[in-house]
Design a protein around this nucleic acid. Sequence first.
DNA 1: TATTTTATCTACTGGTGAGTATATTGATTG
DNA 2: CAATCAATATACTCACCAGTAGATAAAATA
Lengths: 215, 215
Amino acid sequence: MSKSVAITPALPLTSPFRSKSEREQDRADKREAVLLAAVRMFNARGYHAASLDDVAASLGISKPTIYHYLGNKEQVLVECVNRGLSMLREAADAAMSAPGSGHDRLRAFLLRYACVNMDDFGRCVIRTNEEVLSMDSAIRFRARKREIDAAVREMITEGIADGSIAPVDVRFASFALAGALNWPARWHDPAGPLSPQQVAEKLVDIALGGLIPHN
Amino acid sequence: MSKSVAITPALPLTSPFRSKSEREQDRADKREAVLLAAVRMFNARGYHAASLDDVAASLGISKPTIYHYLGNKEQVLVECVNRGLSMLREAADAAMSAPGSGHDRLRAFLLRYACVNMDDFGRCVIRTNEEVLSMDSAIRFRARKREIDAAVREMITEGIADGSIAPVDVRFASFALAGALNWPARWHDPAGPLSPQQVAEKLVDIALGGLIPHN
DNA sequence: TATTTTATCTACTGGTGAGTATATTGATTG
DNA sequence: CAATCAATATACTCACCAGTAGATAAAATA
């Protein structure tokens, strides 16, 4: 019998030879980096004014490399918007299945909603107008936004039923809340002194409490 | 003495020979028509996606005719935005010098504010991002918006002082109100069943009253 | 009536930006 | 090792659009 030779097991040394899954991960990371650079450019300049050449330059690559990872400019935007929508969707699901009164669950959701709207991808959801999308994408976009809105309305309705929310017009209440909490997507400066969490808390308090004295 | 001949006085008949002031009016009307067509195109497609060729086509004229009335594309946008801002400014001045409690004056202003935001030029104020303007125009734009915001804050402050408004954080209250009432600029359909006035009343009630029961 | 001014057009220039053709290099696989 | 595949680049094409040149014709003015 041959003397067994100690085989060095795969040590946690970073080898220059990447496995298949590592290569897939690399690819996914690069794709993600493209989306992040793109969403920032879109948010800063607007979709039409942001060129893929500029996005590529901000990553130190060339435009065709972007096309290697994503089909076309609209797909880049759609993926960005979808990331934002997914965050909102998750927040809605979490709030819907949480315990507490309608008001409490709504409030929890709104805090998260406001924070997402100050994040790169969340901002993009707010700032993207349907007119810039193809008909198909616009329909899907609208449908996903409606899901979020439906969840908000459901929470408001439940709050009215359990007495934790005043008997308001549910449709307009959801519009008013959405407006108040979407607006920071346009003015909040991530580099400024106010954290998204702080802004979210202040705005949610005012949006839910109103300005009329509760004697 | 010669028999005096009855001189036909300038009858209210529309003559094809226009006086100087009539010609000036014609010119002003045409300029205004260009602005209205442009603002609608900007609102429908976004500034960058709306070409002056298309604006001209919508009026049955050619692009150089637009340049005969306005200097360049940015000036067209700036004039549209200024019309919207002037409406808001007037509303603010009227509210500031009206009688009543801080709450009453704020409410009157907000109703008008919301309606303006559903008008062609008002929408344009909301939908125009500073990034699309030249540095100079952006500065002026921001200054004029700040004036409106300052008026809102003043009314809130007065309302807090006279007890008609709860002691909220004035800055965030003005952001929340602005957001709630700006948002219809993005979703309200002028051709839909709800008049701007109706939408404004519902939204202002909810924005001021909040969702918490006032037992 | 001659000259100037106003309103408008057609036809262009120049720049920008989406998307593509194709080459290159290095790694992967048979 | 040969053939293939992945990642990237350079250098294009094509369309669109802001803005301009210059012509024309009608009206206003001198």
